[in-house]
Each structure stands twice: as C-alpha cells, then as structure tokens.
Design a protein around this nucleic acid. Structure first.
Lengths: 229, 229
DNA sequence: CTCATTTTTAACCATTCATTAACCATCTAT
DNA sequence: ATAGATGGTTAATGAATGGTTAAAAATGAG
C-alpha cells in the first residue's frame, strides 16, 4: 500500500534470533535494520528515522529499558516494543511504564509479532470515519465522496485535493515528508510535481481558511503537517 | 430464500475449506464467489459489489489484513470479517482497528459462521423492498417491474435505465466508480459504453427532475452517486 | 417481415481539473 | 549580507471528462 515500506529497527544481541527475525520481517515487506547492540540504537535512530523499534530487553552494554528511556526522551514520536523472555513478568509492567506500545514474549511467534507490528503501524483511518467523515476543526471531510463540508456548505474536492488532504489527515499533527507525499500522490519527486503540490496545498489552505485553528504547517526543507490547535 | 440472495465474497486459499464453505453458504441461499488468492479480491470487489467479504487471514500473495486495509481505503461501505487460526488471540485482532465487523476462528463452526453472517447482513435492506418499491424522494421505484412512479403517474423504464438506477439505489449516497458501473452493466469500459451511460444518466436525471431533493451527483473522474438531501 | 421500442453512435458544447508558468516571499547556509 | 533553495500565490492553458440532443442501428414482439 505505502510506496515506501515501513522501516523497522531491530535491536537484538542474539545472532540467531536477530538474523531470523530480520530475515522474516524483510520477507514480509519491511525494511529492517538489525543492530546487535542497544547502545547503537540511539546513534542510528536519528539518521534512519524508523517507523518502529523492536528492542530486546536483555542486551549487553545497554538494555532495552535504557534504550527505551532515551528514545522517549529524544524521539518521543517513534513507537517501540519490547522483546522479552517468557518468564519475566515484571519487565512487562516496567516496559509499559516507560512508554512501550507493546511487548512480545520469546520464543517469538512470528505471526503474532507480525500482527502486533501491523497494529502499531496502523496509521490508516478506520472505515467508519471514511464513511462518516473525518472532523477537521469545524470542517467535516468525506474522502470517499471527495467532499469537504463546513456549516452545511459542501465543497466538492478534486482527486488531488482529496488525496492530499487524506494523507495529511492520516498523519494528523505529524510531519509528512514532501518526498513521501510526492511519491505517494504523483509517483515521482521532481520540480514540476513539487510545484503542482504547492498549488494544491494553497487550495486546501484556502478551503480550510474559515477555521483559524486548522492549519497546514510547513517545515522548511522537510515537509508538511496538518495541525489542529 | 430471498428474492435477490445476498452476495458473499470468500477469500480462502485452502481448496478444501474454500470448497466446503462456499458450497455450504450456497446451500444456505447465498450467492458465493470464492477466490483462492487475496490479491484478486480488490480486482473483483468493485465489479461484484458483494454484500460481505470473508477473508482468511493467512493467504499466499496477500494476507487478509492487507486486503482488509485496501478494502477500507477503496470500498469503506463493504463489510468484512476475518477467518483466523484458532491459535491467534482475540486481543491481537482487536488491536487491529482496520474495521473488521467480526472474526471467526478455524476450524469453522458452520452454524456460528452463519449466525454471524446473518447478523452482519441484517443491516441490509430486506428483499421485500424490491417488491414494495424503493423510495427515492417522492418517487417510488420498482426495479422488478422496471417502473418509476411519481404522484400516481407511472413511468415505465427500459432495462438499461432500470438497471442503472437500481445500482445507484443499492449504493445510495455512496460513490460508485464509473468503471464498476460500466463493467457491471455493459461488461466493458470503453469510450462508447461511457457515452452510452452518459445518455442514460441524462434520462434518469430527467425522470427524477420533479423532486429537487433527489440528485444524481458526479464526482469528476471517479463516478456517480444518488443523493437524497 | 414490419413497426415500435430500445440502445448505440455521433456531433457538439460545457465544465473540470492537473499542470505549467511566472513572479514574489521566505528561509538557510556561507 | 547575500545568493540559492524552498515555499506561496495567482493565472493561463489544454486535455480529459461530462452533458445534451439527434440520428442511426439493433432488437424484438406481433
């Protein structure tokens, strides 16, 4: 679905399990970076910007909890889950206190792991909102019909306008890289596609201008996000 | 047996289970389309317009969850349920807010499956409306008789007019892609079929012109929907 | 076969939309 | 401070799509 596969950073010191897991996840269509040492996670995470970190709780130089704490401090938007031995029950609680989105027990049931990964990466909008509309400030957006309503007034959107707004909604409050938008909507990232997108962003901003609490914000050189204050 | 049997699309790669289930459901009065590959579901679903999709979670080229996500994105009105191995935990599935209406564990208890199917299809309009007529604003449409009545006046419709209006009614307020309409009514999607459909849309709009609250709305480049304000 | 009805094809016009262009504003690195 | 890169605004254009009407072709009942 997404043009750019989700990127998973796996921190696992055990070579056998690490290899197996990373190969399995690659097979399932993810981009996987496997680090054998917890201390390396923080170095890499800023560069790689993974969509998810999977942290083994027990690792030599720095354990999963320590890594998680640093992650929470420095990259609060990156979700992570723990890999933990079956016996450790206390760890689970500790993990959730730190802010883990989920945990998976070893030995790993690959299918279950995959399910939980999907659950976390699920940023898409549920079917009910697609039908009933997505609230954006005092607007209501109906992607299925390409319509944007505001105080009874219905503005019908073009395909591009609707698709662009939908992606921004799916990542509400979260930066979406220009290149990602362009690749998803235009299938290419060149000068003209960028200019075209600028035009559509301008149109969307115009449509959404009635509610000052709604804003499409630019982060110079990176991308855009939809903000509702 | 209902007048028009509910149409179920079954995606199940296992030949034995697939055959058994589809035959069982046919025996119970459903129209069943059985696909052995998840990736085929999206190709077919626009054309077949099933009332329900049953997706096996584990399938070769595209698993049930992937199919479900695409369904939600492209056909948010079509309900679906999952078939899942007995080992998979319920909470895992609940974590998926993909929008599944229900799930059923394998091995399948046919009685239970049937009950759940009926529960979902309950929301559909009963077949009796096809006999008693479908209300469209201040009109009454009798697809079986190909007639459209308005304040005592009865206008008899041609096959094409009636079929087209029927599909629009079955998806009231919901966008129906032009290509789906064309494939379903003309069996092809080419220049002439499109022009022909334009002609029939014009005729239907003319017939429905007396009630301004009824409208056949176009979404540029995508399709049409019947709107009752 | 004949005739009335239905469907398709044709011709033409209207509208919509994505793109491109041109220009200006703002940001960032040097 | 300044130049190059990035972003914002507005307008024009052409191709694609949709709407309308009429005529031709196909269909089917008698």
């Amino acid at each position: 679905m997404t043009l750019t596969p989700a990127h998973i950073l796996l921190a696992e010191d055990d070579p056998t399990l690490g290899y197996l897991l990373s190969e399995y996840l690659k097979l399932k269509g993810f981009a996987v970076t496997w680090l054998q040492d917890g201390s390396k996670v923080l170095e890499q995470v800023g560069l790689l910007r993974p969509d998810l970190c999977i942290l083994d709780v027990m690792m030599p130089t720095m354990d999963g909890f320590q890594v998680a704490q640093l992650l929470v401090d420095n990259h609060p938007h990156i979700p992570f889950m723990f890999l933990t031995a079956k016996s450790m029950k206390i760890d689970v609680l500790k993990g959730f206190q730190v802010g883990a989105v989920d945990y998976v027990k070893k030995p790993v049931d690959e299918e279950e792991l995959l399910a939980r990964i999907h659950a976390i990466l699920q940023r898409k909008l549920p079917a009910t909102t697609l039908i009933n509309g997505i609230p954006i400030g005092e607007y209501q957006f109906f992607p299925a019909r390409q319509e944007l309503s505001h105080q009874g007034e219905i503005k019908s959107l073009t395909r591009r306008e609707s698709d662009l707004l939908k992606i921004l909604c799916e990542h509400r409050g979260e930066l979406v890289e220009s290149s990602d938008l362009l690749l998803q909507l235009w299938g290419k990232d060149d000068f003209f596609a960028r200019k075209s997108m600028d035009v559509y962003l301008h149109k969307l901003r115009k449509y959404l201008a009635s509610d000052p609490r709604v804003e499409i914000v630019n982060v110079h050189g990176r991308g855009f996000f939809l903000q509702e204050t």
